[in-house]
Write a protein that binds this DNA or RNA. Sequence first.
DNA 1: TAGATTGTTAATCGATTAACAATC
DNA 2: TAGATTGTTAATCGATTAACAATC
Lengths: 219, 219
Amino acid sequence: MNPEFPHDDKIPEAVIRRLPKYYRYLQEMSRRNESRISSSKMSRDMGLNASQIRRDLNCFGGFGQQGYGYSVSKLLEEVSKILGIDRRYGVVIVGAGNIGQALIRYSKFIEQGFDIKGVFDIDQKKVGSLMDSFVVQHVDTLDTFAHKTNVDIGIICVPRIAAQQTADMLVMAGVEGVWNFAPIDVQARKGVSVENVHLNDSLYVLCYRMTEGDRLPPL
Amino acid sequence: MNPEFPHDDKIPEAVIRRLPKYYRYLQEMSRRNESRISSSKMSRDMGLNASQIRRDLNCFGGFGQQGYGYSVSKLLEEVSKILGIDRRYGVVIVGAGNIGQALIRYSKFIEQGFDIKGVFDIDQKKVGSLMDSFVVQHVDTLDTFAHKTNVDIGIICVPRIAAQQTADMLVMAGVEGVWNFAPIDVQARKGVSVENVHLNDSLYVLCYRMTEGDRLPPL
DNA sequence: TAGATTGTTAATCGATTAACAATC
DNA sequence: TAGATTGTTAATCGATTAACAATC
């Protein structure tokens, strides 16, 4: 019935954004030693519609079995593969300021699979200093460094004003992905993926919701 | 034509998520000393459809003027008000680990409007130590602290396993908003707003996109 | 006034949900 | 086999875009 997976029928953005949520959920089920899971239980636990879950997963393949459900371990493995996190990534951090330091320290949050290869900054006062276990290097050396080391992802932790040029440098240096923490949408040529994080936006949405109630007419 | 703004006709989620983007854009226009802006220029600059922009803004009021466009300063002020960031917020950080430290240091990213009132942790080894300019306090003292200080928002920077109970404590302590960095969707009673950040999800989506190309059939 | 651009309705598009036949 | 649950189509819902009358 489904001989030619994966479909490359253009996966909807909404589906892609839900994949990490499935991944997190399946990890949890795996930790709890659940071996099988049905779309209806997932639905209850995750607050998503069961049809939607089945439809989402079917974008990538028929991973389930009628009358049984899904194997947690198999599905977890499949979702890892789909997300592309069944491998390791070399990363560099550009910008050794607040967020940069944060991410180095927090690199544990990048639980496994992501190896920080180097930390770069433009500030001569920071260059040469030790940040956690990394000697901060000058950005001018980024290109050379990236070409002799395996660097897949560049993390942008520089101020807004320098973010786009940093993205450009990273692309020149050959990264395939840019994870941007500066409050601006950086662009990259086709073939280089970009994720703009915008922590501030999330905080603002929180403020919106906190204020929302106050705006509604009193009952 | 629009006598009774703001509509409380249930603002679509998608519109709310775009508000911070409008805010960022308008700040940029303001920095550039632009005094007026049209939906068509916004459309070009932001990569959104002009109709959508006008429709989004009209959820909250008729801020424009036919034949002229929008006043940048007025619109910026309105969007600030809508987001609820035309005021200050007292915040506490719970969890003085990697992300917690990061956010304290990065509190500058919370450019203005957010005042860190206290930092809390459960680890006796951390309690009493100085983190930036904050003495880490024990979480058991959070409730008392929050009731004698003005605390609006609680930021959760504890491990996944402790995230929900931390949320519960924050709600007990009287916060109105929870900004959660643990990789789990925390819940709170009605009336308390929650934003789950999920940095990992964003990184995973980046990996997905980086892998995506490899999956497509060769041309 | 003529030109420009909004506010808003109508048309389109895409995503979610319901339903059910297929099948383990 | 009977029961359960998927995979998938059809129906619904909501969001985006186009179009244009209103109006500054």
